[in-house]
C-alpha cells in the first residue's frame, strides 16, 4: 500500500544512501538511479544543499560542474532533452560563481546578488515540490480507497486512430468515385462457333467419306477459334467411340476415321 511513499534517500545497490561520498556529489554508478529518484536538476540541487554537501554561498563549482558533466555523459543519447536541463543548471551555477569571482565596481555591487535569483528559484521549486508530496500522500482513488459501485463497466471502444491528410483524402475520394467502372455491365455473348454444331458437321462429312483430314473440318477464316472447336469436337467424338484419331509417325497430319458407329 502507499505505493507512492516518498523515498527519503535514493537507493544505491539496494541500500538507502544516507550519505554521499565526500569526493563525489553524485557517484557515477548511482547516476541512473538518481535519474529516477529526482525529478530534475532543481531537485538534485535541493538534495545536495540539504545534505550540506554544497554551500550555495560558497559554491565549489569545479566539482559540481564536473558532476553535472559526468551525469550528462551517462545520459548522453538516452535522454538528451533531460541532459539539456542539467546542462542549463550547470551553466547557471558556473555563471554565478564567475560573477562572484570578478571584482565588482561599486555600481555593480548594487546589482542583485547573483545567488539570490537561484535561491528564489530554488525556494519556489521547493514550495511546489513539498505541496506535490502532500498531494501524493492524499488518499487517491483506486490506490487508497475504492468506489463502491454496481455500475455496468464502461468498455472503451478501441477504435484505431485514423490519421489522414487532406490530399490523401482527396486521392481516396477520387479512387472511390471511379470504382463503379469496375462493375460495369458485361454482356455475355454466345459462342459464334459451337462444339455441338461442329460435331454434327464432322459426322455429316464422315457419312460421305470414311477418313478425313483434320484441316477439312474447319475453315481458314474461322481462325484459331475454328481449330479449337474442331479439336474439341474431334476429341468428344473420339471419347464416345464414334471416330478414331490417327496420326502417322512420319507426318504431323491428323486424320479422323469413322468407326461406323454413327448416330443413325
Amino acid at each position: 500500500m502507499k505505493a507512492q511513499a516518498q523515498l527519503e534517500f535514493p537507493l544505491f545497490k539496494g541500500e538507502a544512501m544516507t550519505q554521499l561520498p565526500e569526493d563525489l556529489f553524485i557517484p557515477p554508478e548511482a547516476l541512473e538511479i538518481y535519474l529516477e529518484d529526482f525529478s530534475g536538476p532543481m531537485d538534485v540541487l535541493l538534495y545536495l544543499i540539504q545534505k550540506k554537501d554544497i554551500d550555495i554561498l560558497d559554491l565549489d563549482l569545479s566539482e559540481i560542474t564536473g558532476q553535472y558533466i559526468q551525469y550528462i555523459d551517462l545520459m548522453d543519447a538516452l535522454k538528451i532533452e533531460l541532459a539539456a536541463d542539467y546542462l542549463v543548471m550547470a551553466a547557471t551555477l558556473t555563471q554565478i560563481k564567475s560573477r562572484m569571482l570578478i571584482p565588482q565596481s561599486e555600481e555593480e555591487e548594487e546589482e542583485q546578488d547573483p545567488r539570490s535569483e537561484l535561491i528564489r528559484r530554488l525556494q519556489e521549486y521547493q514550495r511546489f515540490k513539498s505541496a506535490s508530496e502532500s498531494i501524493s500522500n492524499l488518499p487517491r482513488v483506486d490506490r487508497d480507497f475504492f468506489i463502491a459501485s454496481a455500475a455496468l463497466p464502461t468498455f472503451r471502444e478501441q477504435s484505431p486512430k485514423i490519421e489522414i491528410s487532406a490530399s490523401e483524402l482527396a486521392e481516396i475520394f477520387q479512387e472511390a468515385s471511379t470504382r463503379p467502372k469496375f462493375s460495369a455491365h458485361h454482356e455475355i455473348r454466345f459462342e459464334e462457333l459451337s462444339t455441338q454444331d461442329r460435331i454434327a458437321l464432322i459426322l455429316s462429312i464422315l457419312s460421305r467419306q470414311n477418313v478425313i483430314q483434320f484441316f477439312q473440318t474447319y475453315q481458314k477464316q474461322e481462325g484459331n477459334q475454328g481449330v479449337v472447336v474442331s479439336l474439341l469436337a474431334s476429341l468428344d467424338l473420339a471419347k464416345d467411340g464414334h471416330v478414331e484419331l490417327i496420326q502417322n509417325e512420319d507426318s504431323n497430319q491428323l486424320y479422323i476415321k469413322s468407326t461406323n458407329r454413327g448416330f443413325h
Binding site: 507512492q4 529526482f38 530534475g40 501524493s136
Partner: peptide, 9 residues
C-alpha cells in the same frame, strides 16, 4: 496509479 514525482509536481 503509480505516478511519477515529475507528474505529481
Amino acid at each position: 496509479n503509480r505516478l511519477s514525482k515529475a507528474l505529481m509536481e
